[in-house]
Structures are given as structure tokens and as C-alpha cells.
Amino acid sequence: MIGIISYLTFFLTIAFILAIAVLGLNLQWGFTGLFNGGIVAFFGAGAYGIVLLGGPPRVDGLGGFALPYPVALIGAILLAGALALLVGLATTRLRHDYLAIATFGVAIALETVVRNAEYLTGGAKGLRGFERPFEAMIADPFYYNLFFLLIVFMCVCAVYWFLETLVRSPFGRLLRAVRENERAARSLGKSPPAIRLTSFVLGAMIMGLSGALYATFYAFISPQDLAPILTFQIWAMLIVGGSGNNQGAIIGALVVWGSWVGSGWLLTAVAPQDIQLYAGSIQYILIGSIIVLTLLARPKGLLPEKLSQMRYTMQHSPTPGRRHET
């Protein structure tokens, strides 16, 4: 019984950490219509950021400033935001799919830096983290993990509350206005590029928070944790849950992470030895199929956006080759 609870604790901790990143993507894609093709870069900036800022002093490289946890956390989030600013400034005034290409590129660039800049990131060996907050006070790992799950859950609630407040505020209406009809927003004197940039950077900072929590939980980070598949998983979570709906984003995270872990377990338990080698490929095909089939069969996801009837009658014209006002 203890075994099941402790596994469930572990599962939920990771699922909720990823749910935070899904909420960040929901701000970018769901509410503003911004395509982020490199979620893993902002997640990674947060993860490496917190370990570099809060980690123990290093003898073999830069970093390990051993800053207090909250300071390191804020620093990690700001680092993710700065990375988003670099990409966003170049692309938010251009064609919408340029952001997709640039974010996809920044993820690859960050991966090469993480793998090669040993002085800063420890290279392939990765970086050791630090003692987790309050770990000394709660000695029993079982109870500590439950406590950590609680912290993560509170972070999910805080981000959820923040986003719900944000989208109901005048700024939230602006986001949707830019998404639905950029020309109309501009005619009212608003600046769509600035609004898009704000939303993109805020979303990336939420992804940075997710990465920082991930590195805190494992007290270790290495290039293996920043596999490109993470970006796809986060998308699948948002699309399945229903983009534009924050509750849907959290539910999507649980459902997709559950099927990811479940399929992995099933493949190791049932599949014959020679197929095991390809377990990764099979799981990737699963994620790809979830994305494509959900888009084709149930584009609104499990929980549709509450304003969905407006979105689907106004935005989309049936003719291909339609021009945007970029």
C-alpha cells in the first residue's frame, strides 16, 4: 500500500510539474495564438538556472552561487523570460509561424550549449543540485515527497489562479482580441506585437518555473532531461485537454502523462525483448498520433474554451492561401 501511495505521489508530482508548463503554453497558444516550438528551451533555462544559482559552489566551472531558494527560483524564472525576450523581439512583429521556427531553433541551440559548455553546464554529466527546501526538517523521504507534492500542487493552483485572473482582466480581453482579429485590435489603438510579446514572455516564465521545480525535485539536471520530446508531450497535453481552458490544461497533463507512463510500463512488461529496443519509437509515434488525431477529430479537446463559438465562426476562412495582415 505504501508502495502504491509513494509511486502515486511520484507520478502526480511530475504530472503537476508538467501541468505548470502546459498552463504556460495555454497562455501563449490557448489565449494569444502564439506557437511555441521549443518549450523545452524555457523549461531548461529554468531548470539549469535554479541549479546554477542555488547549487553548491563548483570547483570545475562557473555557477553554484548557493543563493537562498526563493532568490534562485526568481532568478531561474527571469532567465527563462530573458530567453523568451530574445526570441520574441525578433519574431512577434513578423509572420506568425516565424515564432514557431525561432522557438524550435532556440531549443536546439540551448541543447548544444548544455551539452558542450562544460564550464557552465557540466556538459553531458549534468549538474548536481542542492538539498531540497525543508528536506532537513522532514527526515522521512515518504513524508517529504508528499510534502513536495503539496508544494507543487500549490504552485499549480497559484499559476491557475494567476492565469484565470489575467484572462478575465482587460489584458485578457486584449489577448483574445489580438488572437481573433489583429486588424480590429490595431484599429482600436492597441499594439498587437507588444501584447503578443508580453504574453509570450509571461508564458515562458511559467515554463521556467516548471523547469525549476523539476530540477529542485530531482536535485540534478542533465541534457537527458531536456529531450525534444518534452515539447511534444506538453503540446499533446494542451491539445487533448482543450486549448484556451486552464482546467483542461491540467486534466490534459494528467491524462497524457498517464498514457505516456502507462504505455512505457506496458511495453516493458508485455512486449517481447526485441521490440523493447524500439519502445521509445513506439511511444513517440503514440504522442504524434495523439496530436494529429486530436486536431482532426476533436480540435477543441476534452474541455473546450468557454468562448469557443466566437473563435470558430470568425477566425477561419475556408479558402487556402488566405493572407494575414503581418
Binding site: 495564438g33 506557437f35 516550438g37 506568425h96 509561424d97 514557431a100 511534444f232 503540446w235 491539445i239 519509437s281 513506439i282 513517440y284 509515434i285 504522442i287 504524434g288 498520433s289 495523439i290 496530436i291 494529429v292 486536431l295 482532426l296 480540435p299 470558430y312 477566425q315 477561419h316 475556408p318 487556402p320 488566405r322 494575414h324
Partner: peptide
């Protein structure tokens, strides 16, 4: 997708297709 959704939805799908084909 282009008949009933926006161009960015096609970008999404293209990532999914790429993932499927590669694997």
C-alpha cells in the same frame, strides 16, 4: 485542417506528422 482551422493548426499537425514519420 486548412478547411476548418487556422494555419498554425497545420504547423502543430506538421510537428506530429514529422514525429510519426521519423519513428
Amino acid at each position: 485542417l486548412r478547411e476548418n482551422a487556422g494555419p498554425l493548426t497545420m504547423v502543430f499537425a506538421s510537428f506530429g506528422i514529422g514525429l510519426i514519420v521519423r519513428n
